[in-house]
Simulated assay, not measured.
Amino acid sequence: MLVRFDSKVGTFSMFEKDARHMIKLMGHSDTIPGAILGTEIEKTLQTFQTGLTEAAKQENQHLAPKQHEDEEETVSVNRRAYPVLELLKKAAKQKETVMWDFDDKLV
């Protein structure tokens, strides 16, 4: 299932498992649907950046180097978080609300 993040400043979808992780990093329960009011965006952005830094540190401690060339490379938490981070930054500049819900349109 996909989760769609939506705001007046942008929209994107990501897989539910990753979306729930990002929502938790924002300091929210992983409840879907959910929202962050424009008045809370700055605080949420700061919480997300702090949580992302900690998650990246933990990931780097547990990251094993590839043993074989044919192994798939894992996608880092920083790379997965990029669209969320950019959406929060844009929403913070304009004090816009960010919402998320299941994206049934693409399934």
Rank of each mutant, 00 (worst) to 15 (best):
L52Q: 03
R20Q: 11
G38V: 05
F15K: 14
S7H: 05
D101I: 07
F5K: 06
N78V: 04
F15V: 11
Q49E: 13
N78H: 08
T31Y: 10
R80P: 00
V98C: 05
Q58C: 05
K93R: 13
K90H: 02
F5H: 06
S13D: 08
D70R: 15
M26V: 05
P65M: 09
K17Y: 07
R79K: 13
K57L: 10
E72V: 08
K95M: 05
E86M: 14
H28S: 13
E16C: 12
P83L: 08
K57V: 07
L37E: 12
I41N: 04
A56Y: 12
D103A: 13
A35Y: 13
D101F: 15
L87G: 02
T74I: 06
H68C: 03
F5S: 06
L88Q: 01
D30A: 14
V75H: 02
L87N: 03
K89S: 01
E86F: 10
E59Q: 15
P65F: 08
K95Q: 13
V3M: 04
S29T: 15
M1H: 05
D70T: 14
R20A: 04
K57H: 09
L106P: 00
P65G: 04
A64Y: 11
T39P: 00
H28T: 05
G51I: 05
F15E: 06
I23S: 00
N78T: 08
E54H: 11
A19W: 03
W100T: 04
T50L: 12
D103L: 09
A19V: 08
E96F: 07
L25M: 09
H21E: 11
T50R: 11
P33I: 09
Q49K: 15
L37R: 14
A56R: 15
I36F: 06
